[in-house]
Amino acid sequence: MANPWPDNGLLTLVWFVLCILAVMLPVVLAVAFVIYFDRKIWAAMQLRRGPNVVGPFGILQSFADGIKLVLKETVVPASANKGVFFIAPVLTFVLAMVAWAVIPWGYINGVKLVISDINVGILYLFAISSLGVYGIIMSGWASNSRYPFLGGLRSAAQMVSYEVSIGFVLITVLLCVGSLNLSDIIEAQRNMWFFIPLFPMFIIFLISALAETNRPPFDLPEAEAELVAGYQVEYSSMTFAMFWLGEYANILLMCAMISILFFGGWLPPFAFLDFIPGPIWLILKIAVFFFVFSWVKAAVPRYRYDQLMRLGWKVFLPISLGAVVVVSGFLVAFDLLPNKG
């Protein structure tokens, strides 16, 4: 978005804060509804009714939960490492929020809706999502308790492993685009959304995104059957809520990344649907992929730890590495490289 007060220190700062709020508040609100949505879908798949008491259709359930958490007492374990213990949930939440800074929402009246349209947008997203592991590993360590620690270790190994294949999938997309800018990536899909030529990469990315956000079937860090709740065991009230918010904001972010990388971001599926503005399309796509996430959570049993590692290192890594070679070879052989010259 263009800054109406350029070259003016303080007002620029105010403008930035306004932009940030304009994206952050809807995201936090969306998280509240998305949690409700998640529980409803899950309940429906198990032939239950889900939350249905607070508000019409239980739609205000998340707010009730939120108020409850805020009002509760924050319990800190006596032997916890206090500083790190409190930084961890804040970090999770903040990282899940700052990533939204580069997500482009499309054009309204010729104005591009994005806080920061940086050249290396996709790397920024990748970098921020790779930092997500710290919230978990720090909370696991700082709780000074067995189960959280095990959860933290599991999550560190898991997220680092799946990041590798996510990185390679990103490279295949970038090869087809020739730019690291998210808007360019979307514009490059005007003729064909990338999930068609890069379908296997889309599948790998989707599954790795599940692993990266610790969603079932890869929720080993918090596996309640084995680790009670993993790294979250010792957290209560607001700190717990922050983990919760951060986790769901991360899931939404992953859905947004899938939409942008493979499903044309704010582009409409058909040219004649152009009259519907870009942000609506992007939000719709995010909602669809969130439904997929919930669906998977309800339908698939949890992976065993060795199976998880095997899938990451022995299946996804070779396939995605091979795909980088194949895609780049294909682009060179048929002279389809973007930005020639």
Binding site: V120, L123, F126, A127, S130, L131, V133, V160
Partner: peptide
């Protein structure tokens, strides 16, 4: 970004 991805991440 590479510094963050490789070293921090």
């Amino acid at each position: 970004m590479i510094l963050v991805i490789v070293y921090v991440g």
